[in-house]
């Protein structure tokens, strides 16, 4: 479903100062798979996601979703995205925001109404659904953003730190939602620092350090706890903080 082939991306921070965020990254995620992408801060995880969604463009390499190049916006017709921090129009209510999200995907009003009712119920936001999002807590905003990412029943769900800002109840709700997506055969790409969730939810995991994919494999075939593998990989990559 997702295919990145030798993708590189460098940013110009200031005249003469360049940072390579991603270099020679190749990875594939099959349909129906839940892929966990982990790495230290600044590893290139969010950059990889933004490249996948054509928010930024690679300097070299190719990226496809369902065989379509990401430069073609139709590749994202069945993609739902949750950014790292919830970026929501806070002057809207949750109902209005989900209506907007649904209309962006061309959903009819009746479908939006049904889907938003289901998602708001699953994410325990029904009581607050007619209040402006500006009055929501961080966790409620995060859950609203998750609902918006799923309103159109996407085949590929890209979640960047889905547990960010959530209390234990919120984490359970989101965890169950992702498990349900997995059961329904959806393809899920998760970037997260919560390694226990990655171990429990994901079929495969990739460890990105300093823009490169250092490890990739099936979670079921891990010979050590994921945290240990993560630290080992980061040390191999020569990241000073770990050494």
């Amino acid at each position: 479903m997702i295919h990145l082939d030798q993708v590189s991306k460098t940013f110009q921070l200031a005249p003469g100062k360049r940072v390579t965020a991603v270099q020679g990254l190749s990875l594939s995620v099959s349909r129906g798979e839940v892929f966990g992408c982990i790495g230290p801060n600044g590893a290139g995880k969010s950059t990889t996601i933004k490249l996948l969604l054509d928010l930024i463009r690679p300097d070299s390499g190719s990226i496809t979703i369902n065989g379509l190049p990401t430069a073609d916006e139709s590749s994202r017709a069945a993609v739902g995205y949750l950014p790292e921090s919830p970026y929501i129009y806070d002057f809207l209510t949750a109902h209005e925001y989900l209506r907007y999200a649904g209309r962006l995907s061309g959903l009819p009003a009746a479908v939006i109404s049904t889907r938003s009712g289901e998602l708001l119920a699953k994410l325990k936001l029904e009581q607050a659904a007619d209040r402006r999002i500006s009055g929501y807590s961080k966790g409620m905003q995060q859950r609203t953003a998750i609902a918006a990412a799923l309103i159109h029943n996407p085949d590929l769900v890209v979640l960047d730190e889905p547990m960010s800002g959530l209390d234990p109840l919120g984490r359970k709700l989101v965890f169950d939602l992702i498990a349900e997506l997995k059961e329904r055969g959806k393809t899920v790409f998760i970037s997260s620092h919560v390694l226990t969730d990655i171990e429990r939810l994901c079929d495969r995991v990739g460890i990105i350090v300093q823009g490169r994919l250092w490890h990739e494999g099936r979670v079921a075939e891990l010979t050590m706890p994921l945290e240990e593998l993560f630290l080992q990989t980061v040390a191999e990559a020569g990241l000073d903080e770990v050494k």
Partner: peptide
């Protein structure tokens, strides 16, 4: 600045 346009641009919205 707030990246609220990500919702639209991450969909099939040119």
């Amino acid at each position: 600045e707030r990246k609220t346009l990500y919702l639209a641009l991450s969909r099939a919205v040119p």
